[in-house]
């Protein structure tokens, strides 16, 4: 059985829609009759376990970002709850780290300051900073040390004092990951993190995520909390490559035997993905077959079947 404490994030019956009375455009089959609601998510249920790297994929407009925002807490769902570590999340907090495609770093801070600012904001406040300047200074030193160590681990040892605009896109994203990781969040959300990078840099960053996954074993043994990561991406290869579990959302599914009347996107695919350590060649055959499976389940408008068919993660997990 699964330990309840191992569930980091639970999305419970999440449904979401946008009010589009002002929006004249009818958007696909999501815009129904006289209903003014543009339905986005319908009854999404996801449980993420500690130490997993989950990839969230789906056709564009399926609500991946909406779900991510709901989990992050900036835009809570209209129906259902996001439960992080047992308590309902309704606003962004230190439990959820986030790395965006852009704007993740503070432009006025150097790499090391960008990483160290998290603990500083978290562990001190205005009062303590004002009345205990020496103590604050000392804490700042420790944070900087930790930040430098972390950046060094991520291969940014020689860019500690660079400002974001002086860094390359890959360096910026790695710094952003460090900035989030130093907080040791319950879950780290990555929103299309490498979408703007060139291929070589992207691969480099993907390897970094795999390294983090590899470290989880070690961390478990050392009694540290392993990293839990949810990555939203539009690239299937990336999803299969970096994650150990792929979840796909799609609006193309058969609801109530009526494919036209879709109440919103839901989870149509949830399955483990093989993990390829950074230095291991991936098995092309296995890789492509899973890719095709996801394409069929989530991306093909003509394939409109029950959502349960490819939801095999929990079955597999419970059987093992």
């Amino acid at each position: 059985m699964i330990d309840k404490n191992d569930i980091v994030v639970e999305c419970k019956n999440i449904s979401h829609w946008f009010d589009c009375r002002d929006d004249n455009k009818k958007i696909g089959n999501l815009w129904q009759g006289n209903d003014f609601r543009k339905k986005v998510l319908y009854d999404v249920n996801i449980k993420v376990l500690r130490g997993e790297i989950v990839a969230l994929v789906g056709p564009s407009g399926c609500g991946k970002s909406t779900l991510l925002k709901a989990i992050l807490g900036t835009h809570p769902p209209l129906q259902g709850d996001v439960i992080i570590n047992g308590s309902i999340s309704y606003k962004p907090s230190r439990h959820c780290g986030i790395v965006y495609q852009t704007y993740s770093l503070f432009p006025f801070l150097t790499a090391i300051e960008n990483v160290a600012i998290g603990p500083l904001l978290d562990k001190t406040n205005t009062v303590s900073r004002t009345f205990h300047p020496f103590k604050t200074q000392e804490m700042k030193k420790t944070f900087h040390k930790r930040a430098a160590q972390l950046l060094d681990d991520l291969g940014l040892g020689n860019a500690l004092n660079s400002y974001p605009h002086e860094m390359s896109g890959g360096m910026r994203q790695r710094t952003a990951i460090a900035q989030a990781l130093i907080m040791e969040p319950e879950i780290l959300l990555l929103d299309e993190p490498f979408g703007a990078l060139d291929e070589t840099t992207r691969e480099e960053c993907q390897r970094l995520l795999l390294t983090l996954y590899m470290q989880n074993e070690k961390r478990r043994n050392e009694g540290k909390t392993p990293y839990t990561i949810l990555i939203v991406t539009h690239e299937l290869s990336e999803a299969i490559l970096v994650s150990d579990r792929v979840i796909a959302l799609s609006q193309h599914w058969n609801w109530n035997n009526n494919s036209q009347d879709c109440p919103g996107a839901t989870v149509v695919y949830d399955s483990p993905a093989p993990v390829y350590p950074p230095d291991v060649e991936k098995e092309i055959l296995e890789f492509t077959s899973q890719k095709n499976e996801i394409k069929k389940a989530a991306f093909d408008p003509k394939y409109c079947q029950s959502r349960d068919i490819y939801n095999k993660y929990w079955k597999l997990l419970l059987n093992s």
């Binding site: 962004p92 986030i98 993740s104 600012i117 998290g118 904001l121 907080m183």
Partner: peptide, 14 residues
């Protein structure tokens, strides 16, 4: 950008 502000909240700022 809103992202920057959300980010700050996730870093534990009030």
């Amino acid at each position: 950008p809103m992202e920057t502000i959300y980010k700050s909240y996730t870093l534990g700022g009030n």
